[in-house]
Design a protein around this nucleic acid. Structure first.
Length: 626
RNA sequence: GGUCUGGUAGCUCAGUCGGAUUAGAGCAACAGCCUUCUAAGCUGUGGGUCAUGGGUUCGAGUCCCAUCCGGAUCACCA
């Protein structure tokens, strides 16, 4: 049982005995003792002063004395400062806590069973007319991390992607390619497919704006010019042909989309993200119409004189929302309804999470109401994981204005920077092959990028300055990875000098549980409470490290409850910072007292394990050396 | 204008259920520490009216109200 739980229960009993009133669990507030005071766990006694009718200090004194009598873990040295009762917990207790964590390779994770709820997470969801940029990177990293976090909280997770592969914007790229492409292909030009298509999208826009400019110069007003420009009319014609299944248009569309997918897949691979099921809007957009007709028949929606179909949400405090155009074609909302229908046919969804930017808050508010009305049981409680925009110093990224940070460029830059960083190091790694160096640079560069994005609260807008490169020092991914590499270095040295490996523990290092989480990579014999740990007195830094380790479970739970991966990032940073201080002040392998040495080896091993698993939840790898 | 959302150090960000006379990290600046398990590290200095004004209470960066300033959204675009 956790020491906090023991204390909480004891306090409930003691306070009731002392003051004759039942104490709800919530009233017992425990926190980590501030470093400037002696002790490790602090009880806030203010809530009890109303019952005791005594000063906070006296109340704390009374409770403290009883606690000491009743719990062997609470040793002398407790002191009451104002309304705060600081408790000293015995070293033996802390060691046994470490022992428990050590013995549990999936520490912090809830198991996924057949009865676990099924959570579907939609993320990424790109348009196929331009390459991925930094905004998509944030989406992908958040989606992946959220999936890992939900899994760690005992949910079955299905990761899904809805590809927006049809519509006027794709037609623009197609048209531009037909007009000015001269048959260019990814093979002929050596361009990545998504970038090639993106270039034609930009080309379309350039020519289109020129046409509009000329029409305006001839005296047409701008709104009309935007609709009358020959290029846009041609694009619309192409869209109509697409909808009519014109073989030529469809063939071109298929070919160009394939180029884009090949490009996207490269970027996804570099980002380390993947999907269990991919939906294409071209296959789902018609499904929504049926559902809308169904709702119309049930009287949930209504049809206007011009034939368009609307949902009246004024009763919910919202506006009226268009569901089908007057020509019968579907809009964005209709497509999401259709996708929802297909998904529910494919999976027994208990909870649906959409990872989509906060600019679409209104859309998902409406979607939730509509799905609920249409009878989707998860509609009402669907989660819009609404993340903030990535802003540049000059404001938002805009594809058309070319003010975007390209994902592929950024990834390449990060890896090159990481490579340079290790080349510049004073303590360079010797005996390392070119391939290994490149692999380390990839892990570290991606770690820097991913951590940079995931450490900030997903809900908030964040700033990226392309002029300043992403840091590798301080509160960064590489800082955490570096600590892991240091720990692994200690482990390698120790294992090399160890007389005989413990056979009963051999082979644990390669195990993987069903959630795909890596298992402890250590086989260190740990001093136990009744055995070797006897009489060991820990220094404050060792105790606070164990306390931090104990906090991992809470961090995982909170990240899951709040849908907030940044909890995990911040947790890892705090843990690793603490470990680096310990590492600096105390030697592990050169400690002469064998009990202490073994304890510190085990402590280091557990820190390494938790760091690896924690970073794993963020999709960040950790290197053996760097 | 309606709705939603944010405002914490020069910059980027933490701050959990409201808790400790002194609100934390990192970057940038300055000063130290490699003969030592990896210096991508550690230690120190300077830097704050937690947007503003009220309220709630033993106690407010945190909760409530008002105001100021930003952002998003309110399309027969997606």
């Amino acid at each position: 049982m956790k020491i906090e739980t023991k204390i909480t229960e004891a306090v409930q009993v003691i306070v009731e005995e002392l003051y004759g009133q039942p104490v709800p669990e919530k009233m017992v507030q425990l926190q980590e003792t501030r470093p400037e005071f002696e002790g490790q766990i602090t009880l806030v006694v203010f809530p009890f002063t109303k019952m005791s009718h005594k000063a906070p200090e006296a109340t704390a004194q009374e409770i403290g004395e009883r606690l000491k009598e009743q719990l062997p873990e609470v040793i002398s040295g407790f002191n009451a400062v104002k309304g705060f009762l600081n408790l000293c917990i015995s070293s033996a207790c802390w060691i046994s806590i470490l022992q428990e964590i050590y013995a549990n390779p999936t520490y912090g994770f809830k198991p996924v069973t057949d009865d676990s709820p099924l959570v579907m997470i939609e993320y990424s969801s790109p348009n196929t007319n331009k390459p991925l940029h930094l905004g998509h990177v944030r989406n992908n990293l958040l989606g992946w991390a959220l999936a890992k976090v939900m899994e760690a909280n005992g949910n079955k997770v299905v990761k899904t992607n809805i590809v927006n592969d049809r519509g006027i914007h794709i037609c623009k790229s197609m048209l531009a390619w037909l007009k000015w492409g001269n048959g260019e292909t990814p093979e002929s030009s050596g361009k990545k497919g998504d970038h090639l298509i993106g270039d034609y999208y930009v080309a379309f826009d350039k020519h289109y704006r020129e046409e509009v400019r000329q029409l305006v110069a001839q005296g047409m007003d701008e709104e009309q010019a935007k609709q009358e420009a020959p290029l846009i009319k041609e694009a619309h014609e192409m869209l109509v042909k697409w909808e009519q299944n014109d073989p030529e248009v469809r063939a071109l569309w298929r070919k160009m989309n394939e180029w884009v997918y090949a490009g996207f897949n490269e970027t996804y691979k570099a980002l380390g993200v993947s999907f269990d099921k991919i939906y294409y809007e071209s296959e789902t957009y018609l499904e929504g119409k049926e559902k809308v007709e169904e709702g119309l028949a049930k009287g949930l929606f209504y049809r206007r004189d011009d034939g368009s179909v609307w949902a009246d949400l004024t009763g919910e405090g919202l506006d009226e929302k268009l569901l089908l155009r007057s020509d019968g074609t579907s809009v964005y909302m209709t497509q999401d309804i259709g996708t929802a229908k297909l998904r529910f046919q494919d999976y027994p969804i208990d909870k649906m999470i959409y990872v989509v930017g906060n600019e679409q808050n209104y859309h998902f508010q409406v979607l939730s109401i509509l799905l609920d009305k249409l009878g989707f049981k998860w509609g009402k409680d669907l989660v819009h994981f609404s993340y903030g925009m990535v802003e540049l110093p000059n404001g938002k990224m805009k594809s058309r204005e070319g003010t975007v940070v390209d994902a592929d460029d950024l990834i390449a830059t990060m890896i090159a920077d990481a490579r340079q960083m290790s080349a510049d190091k004073v303590n360079k790694l010797e005996d390392i092959t070119e391939d290994e160096a490149q692999e380390i640079a990839r892990i570290v560069g991606m770690g820097a990028l991913k951590y940079f994005i995931l450490k900030v609260d997903a809900r908030k807008n964040m700033l990226f300055n392309p002029e300043e490169s992403i840091d590798f020092n301080g509160n960064t991914g590489p800082f955490i990875q570096y600590t892991y590499a240091r720990i692994r270095s200690i482990m390698r040295k120790w294992e090399a000098t160890r007389p005989t490996p413990n056979p009963s523990l051999a082979g644990r290092g390669t195990d993987t549980n069903q959630a795909g989480l890596s298992v402890a990579e250590h086989s260190t014999p740990l001093p136990t409470r009744e055995g070797q740990g006897e009489g060991l007195v820990l220094v404050p830094k060792e105790i606070s490290l164990i306390q931090h380790l104990q906090g991992f479970e809470a961090a995982v739970r909170q990240a899951g409850q709040d849908y907030n991966p940044s909890c995990i990032a911040n947790y890892c940073y705090e843990l690793v910072k603490e470990y680096n201080q310990f590492y600096h002040d105390f030697s592990v392998l050169k400690e002469e007292d064998e009990k202490k040495r073994l304890f510190r080896i085990a402590l280091s091993a557990v820190v390494g394990q938790v760091v690896k698993n924690g970073m794993g939840l963020l999709g960040i790898e950790v290197p053996e050396r760097m």
